[in-house]
Amino acid sequence: MSNTTETATDASHGATETAHGAVDAAHEAASGGLPQLDFSTFGNQIFWLALALIAIFFVLSKVALPRIASVLAERRGTITNDIAAAEDLKVKAQEAEEAYNQALADARVEAAKIVADAKADIQADLDVAIAKADADITAKAAESEAAIAEIRAGAEAAVKDVAKDTAKEIIAAMGGKADARSVTSAVTARMKG
């Protein structure tokens, strides 16, 4: 160590001459030994280490760690919310499906009802028409029967007249004298038999 630096350090350190002597001895030892055991550099290292640690501590505790903590919390919240939203949507989808099935079933029931109603209507109309047709047919038949009866009665009277006339003619032709009353009764009796 040169004299100039010696005096300079002496001036700056002032009254620590004995300590300085010790540091000098340490220097001598360090030049051949471990730099780690060079105690003259300890103060320097500890000073800068303290500064570095304080700097890291403030950067971490004031900026980095709260920021990361908030990001992690936010992410956890987002994930939880998303899962909840997904559950919600799933429930809604299930509800929608149920509503759809319900609507489908309702529509089926409605359709069946409409079909049944239509069938019943048609059946009623049909029944009415059939009844009317039946009534018409009955009326027509009765009419026809009446006409037939009339014709038959007409025919019978005609036959009776013809029979009376014929019987009178036959009796006259045979030389007898026809009694109108007895001929009529005879013809009537015959016709009945």
Binding site: T9, S40, N44, Q45, W48, A52, A55
Partner: peptide, 19 residues
Amino acid sequence: GDVTWWTPTNATLWMVLAV
């Protein structure tokens, strides 16, 4: 020069780099 308690040294440099 001498390594006083405040002298920036190679140790200082690498501590600062760590920061």
